[in-house]
Design a protein around this nucleic acid. Structure first.
Lengths: 219, 219
DNA sequence: CGGGTTCGTGTAGCATTCACACGAACCAAG
DNA sequence: CTTGGTTCGTGTGAATGCTACACGAACCCG
């Protein structure tokens, strides 16, 4: 029974959508070990700081994203050998940002064929991708990739990117509207010489899980 | 950036099924603080010990359960004030045991209307119950409540207990068998003056999640 | 005012889900 | 050995939900 434990870190898997492709925010390490390798953004938890708060702080400090993001705990890693410098506890968080939230110092990489990461971060990224995929099937979390207001075509594009297949337009709309998670707002979006599109917002930013026979996909 | 972090513990939510009611294993604290209050079983992680290994060790040492149980990480808690003695990281695990695995030193309590727990353990228990409920809908984890071999009526009883409602016998059997997760084994179970029941085992103990349109319930 | 492109909408066939009832197997007791 | 009581084990039809599919509407630009 120890009076203190290993150093406690938070590491973040930050997902964004750029040009219809799922991307993850990476940093390049400046120091040894793993100098020059890519890592997930992260940092140490301060004394008497709640972990989740630390995660939000790191998000703010290291990426410039504001607090209007979706964040949830992903998994906690602690195995000797994770970091050559010594034992470590790494609490990881899963973050979804919209393109509006910019000015990260890191750079976004496509989530498939991301480069090999330092430390245990490959493992973390894999877990994040897996989590995102299940969220895409059962929840409205993917809507957090969008800035409000958005069109139904925007929404469909998000789900198609995450599920990596085309979806039928009419069926998709029926389904997503049946969730009763969107509200139509005033105005239309007009772009190019096309019919303008209706605009929507999330009804409640908190209701993410679809209870009650709420399996969204498959189609 | 600290050279060490707060002490690291594991705390366990251990579920069992007794007489068709979901129960959770609790200990009574002998020392201050919270002397005499109920807690989840747990313990500190040793130096250079992987957390999951610590969880299995605690499970073994404090409850006598063998390693043939279902265990997965639940959530990691770390907020100042969780423990009056000081800061702490509590990695929690979710465990399902069958009635066969006995000789715990703690005692089982019904999961609904469990007594108020010490520390942050009420929070942990709530999270565990919630996790179990979703597992009951999407996975075969509930089968781990049973000892093998079991009858289909046993299986139905487990799901009915977890979902807290009656299920139709014929539909249930069709559905559970369609998962192709069970294998029939030799022999019958005969009990009382009744028609004997066929016996089954889990086909693979590792395949828990139902992919591919695998929503088990609702009916 | 005509062409090009995206937006927005209904239906019919098919598959899945649900509701529902009764004979079979067994043991115990008479 | 027959009867009674209880659990085991099984099929079908109706309703619901899912999927596949095509075309007019709205707009801007040239």
């Amino acid at each position: 029974m120890s009076l203190h434990g290993p150093p406690l870190r938070v590491d973040l898997v930050i997902f964004g959508l750029r040009e219809e492709s799922l991307q993850v925010l990476l940093w390049r390490r400046g120091d040894a070990p793993y100098r020059g390798r890519w890592t997930l953004p992260g940092g140490f938890v301060r004394e008497a700081e709640p972990v989740e708060e630390a995660a939000r702080r790191v998000l703010r400090e290291k990426t410039g994203f504001d607090e209007e993001v979706y964040i949830e705990q992903l998994y906690t890693f602690c195995e000797p050998g994770m970091d050559p410098r010594g034992p470590l506890v790494s609490a990881t968080y899963f973050v979804v940002v919209s393109p509006e939230q910019t000015s990260p110092d890191g750079t976004f990489h496509p989530a498939k064929d991301a480069p090999a990461l330092a430390f245990h971060h490959d493992q973390v990224l894999r877990k994040g991708v897996e989590r995102l995929r299940t969220k895409a099937e059962y929840s409205t979390v993917p809507l957090r990739f969008l800035e409000e207001p958005f069109t139904l075509s925007d929404v469909q594009a998000v789900y198609e990117a995450l599920l990596d297949r085309a979806l039928d337009k009419r069926n998709f709309r029926r389904k997503i509207l049946a969730l009763d998670a969107l509200t139509e707002v005033e105005g239309r979006r007009r772009v190019g010489a096309h019919r303008p599109a209706r605009l929507f917002e999330l009804k409640e930013r908190t209701a993410y899980l679809l209870k009650e026979r709420g399996i969204l996909f498959p189609f």
